[in-house]
């Protein structure tokens, strides 16, 4: 094999180039990522998980939740809504003007134009940025997922198959630990026709004793254990629920801006 060195060199360059592109470049770009500031706020994001939620990530991983659930919200675009916040000195003219204008689902330029028109008539307006996309219209989140969301996940449980819904925002969507625990024990008791298998081995069925048990699940009759017994979550189940509640991709960031819905209600 007289060209052995050349074969080695070619293989080295090919593998080295892909290593540079797939490993080195991402590490250089995101390897030093830190907490970032939430838009228009002095708070930082994300916050470190509590101990039980950190352990819960390992329960999530051990039970293969990522086989059926993703943790990544997709976004296909943004629209702008122009919201009238004050009618100014000439409310009749402003309301006449506004009734003839399209105020929702605008592009940035259209929104700027509309705002300028209303402002010229004396009205006060705000422009709201609203992300759009299939996942967002399903109610799975407010904005797309970005690298910062996974800062404290190890390993990151992105998932690739959606037999169940996306969980990137589950803590904001269903932030009730009791609901989460009941759903883990008997998914069909809270979501009818759910395809999720029950994770009963994360719970213990115990005889009701003298001491009250604040953790016992409050199950409907159909799913309840026999009379005289109660269902108590194990530490693993509680950790998993804490982890699910810690998944909250619901704050605006520089790289994924949006106008918080709370501001809309003001």
């Amino acid at each position: 094999m007289k060209s052995g060195f050349r074969v080695f060199l070619a293989a080295f360059i090919a593998l080295g180039a892909s290593w540079c592109g797939l490993v080195l470049a991402p590490v250089l770009q995101l390897g030093t990522a830190k907490q970032t500031a939430i838009l228009n706020s002095s708070d930082t994001y994300p916050i470190q998980r509590t101990g039980d939620a950190t352990l819960g990530l390992q329960v999530y991983r051990a039970n293969g939740c990522a086989a059926c659930h993703t943790e990544q919200i997709q976004q296909s675009g943004v629209v702008f809504d122009v919201v009238l916040t004050g009618a100014g000195k000439n409310p009749v003219a402003v309301s006449n003007l506004v009734s003839g204008l399209k105020l929702t689902g605008l592009t940035k330029d259209e929104a700027d134009g509309t705002s300028a028109k209303i402002a010229a008539a004396g009205g006060k307006v705000e422009t709201h940025l609203i992300p759009t996309g299939a996942d967002i219209s399903r109610g799975w989140g407010i904005r797309r997922s970005v690298a910062t969301d996974y800062l404290y996940d190890y390993p990151v449980q992105l998932g690739s198959l959606r037999i169940g819904p996306d969980l990137a925002d589950i803590g904001a969507r269903l932030g009730n630990a009791d609901w989460q625990l009941q759903h883990l024990y008997a998914p069909q008791s809270v979501v009818k026709n759910s395809a999720m298998p029950p994770f009963r081995f994360l719970f213990q069925v115990e005889k009701i004793g003298d001491a009250p048990s604040p953790d016992a699940l409050n199950l409907p009759a159909e799913f309840a254990p026999p009379a005289g017994y109660k269902v108590v979550p194990t530490t693993d189940a509680k950790n998993l629920a804490a982890y699910l509640l810690s998944l909250r991709a619901d704050v605006p960031l520089y790289e994924a801006p949006f106008t918080p819905p709370v501001a809309e209600k003001k």
Binding site: Q29, L30, L39, N40, Q75, S76, G77, V78, K108, L129, G133, R144, V146, A147, Y254, E255, A256, P257, T259
Partner: peptide, 19 residues
């Protein structure tokens, strides 16, 4: 750019969307 994710196409576009 590490800050630019789809559907945003450039740092300038993202910048223009900041409140």
């Amino acid at each position: 750019d590490a800050k630019v994710y789809g559907p945003y196409s450039s740092a300038d576009e993202l910048d223009s969307y900041q409140p």
